[in-house]
């Protein structure tokens, strides 16, 4: 998907750069090998760009101009209609799946408009109505509270604990991070995936982690609501 966009817009002077937020880079490897990207494809195993750029879920993106200046802040970066929103809900489906799909249908469909905005910016640069001024970018970035700062510190202490092999300590730090900044799904999903994804398996997006975190992705997605799941681009 990102490779196709890169190929389309590269002649216009735009490059896609993808960054995988994976504590274990090997989890990202099969996805990267399948996509065979010709654009820079990076791995951020410390979640540095969470705080650097205000990333709080995936996929999210920022726009950077030719001078290294942000012209759009971190925002949800769907570029195609959600396949989940299009899925027909049937009585045969488990109740939980029906509920999740109903919430996906509540999510405003921004993919095609966001993609069109990227293409417009690639063509027109600073003349594109979607490219913001520096002041607008800062003002449009998400608020950052003292709790968010504390959450980032706790998440980092969790990463350090995990790296020295103390998983229980890592979980304790990550639970604090989740409580302090519940809107940051990268902190939650990164931690949950270590419990829910068997070694070597690709991904378990249901992330049922009742035993370890007393929750699950679907519990929290339903509580949050599809409409609030990501930072919607204001186009």
């Amino acid at each position: 998907m990102w490779q196709a966009l890169h190929e389309e817009l590269e002649p216009l002077g735009l490059s896609v750069v993808t960054v995988a937020l994976d504590l274990d880079p090997d989890k990202a490897r099969p996805w990267i090998e399948r996509a065979a990207p010709t654009h820079p494809s990076l791995v951020d195993s410390d979640h540095r760009i969470d705080e650097l750029l205000g990333i709080s879920n995936v996929p999210m993106a920022v726009w950077i101009d030719e001078t290294g200046t942000l012209v759009r802040p971190a925002e949800g970066a769907s570029i195609q209609p959600s396949p989940f929103a299009a899925m027909e809900i049937t009585d045969e489906m488990p109740d939980r799946l029906q509920a999740v799909l109903r919430e996906f249908k509540q999510m405003p469909e921004t993919g095609p408009a966001y993609r069109a905005a990227i293409v417009d910016w690639a063509n027109r640069g600073a003349d594109s109505p979607y490219a913001m001024s520096p002041d607008e970018v800062v003002a449009a970035s998400q608020p950052r509270s003292a709790d968010h700062s504390r959450a980032a510190a706790c998440f980092e202490l969790g990463v350090a604990a995990e790296r020295r092999g103390d998983h229980p300590a890592a979980m304790a730090w990550w639970k604090q991070a989740h409580a302090l900044f519940p809107e940051n799904w990268t902190y939650k999903r990164q931690a949950w995936t270590l419990e829910s994804t068997p070694d070597g398996a690709d991904s378990d997006r249901a992330q049922e982690v009742q035993d370890s975190y007393g929750t699950s992705w679907s519990d929290e997605f339903l509580a949050t609501g599809g409409a609030n799941y990501t930072v919607l681009p204001k186009l």
Binding site: E51, V138, R144, H148, S149
Partner: peptide
Amino acid sequence: ALGPDSGGRALTTATVPPIELPD
């Protein structure tokens, strides 16, 4: 661990900070 500055927005400036990451 020292968290990021807070009390304002996620971005303090529109200038992209130095970012070096591995492939």
